[in-house]
């Protein structure tokens, strides 16, 4: 059989789980957890493609490391945004900032 397809299948399932959390969760932190799951699946897909095909393996592994760095930067910023939202609206649900004032 074809090992790379198994790894890609796991990555697709992680993407689906993350997307579901992103859409269905009520709070911003729950959505952040979904985004981390998706980025994780992306890293797994990149490394599997790099290690199991004739592609440059160094490029693939460094790409996965860059994805991790971007995920860390994104988590930092989202933490700050969640703090600001919860300070200004009283709770960290995704619906609170969507309401219009009037």
């Amino acid at each position: 059989m074809n090992p790379i397809l198994y790894y890609q299948a796991v990555a697709v399932v992680l993407l689906g789980l993350g997307l579901y959390a992103l859409v269905a969760r009520r709070t911003l932190v729950g959505m952040l957890i979904g985004v981390e799951l998706m980025l994780n699946g992306a890293g797994l897909s990149i490394v599997a493609a790099a290690q199991l095909t004739p592609m440059d393996a160094v490029l693939g592994q460094l790409g996965a490391l860059l994805v991790m760095g971007l995920a860390a930067a994104e988590a930092t910023l989202v933490l700050a945004i969640v703090l600001v939202v919860s300070k200004r609206f009283g709770d960290a649900s995704a619906d609170a900032p969507a309401e219009l004032k009037g």
Binding site: I33, E36, A92
Partner: peptide, 8 residues
């Protein structure tokens, strides 16, 4: 993430 949960 844990800080985000705790602080909010």
């Amino acid at each position: 993430i844990f800080f985000a949960i705790m602080l909010t």
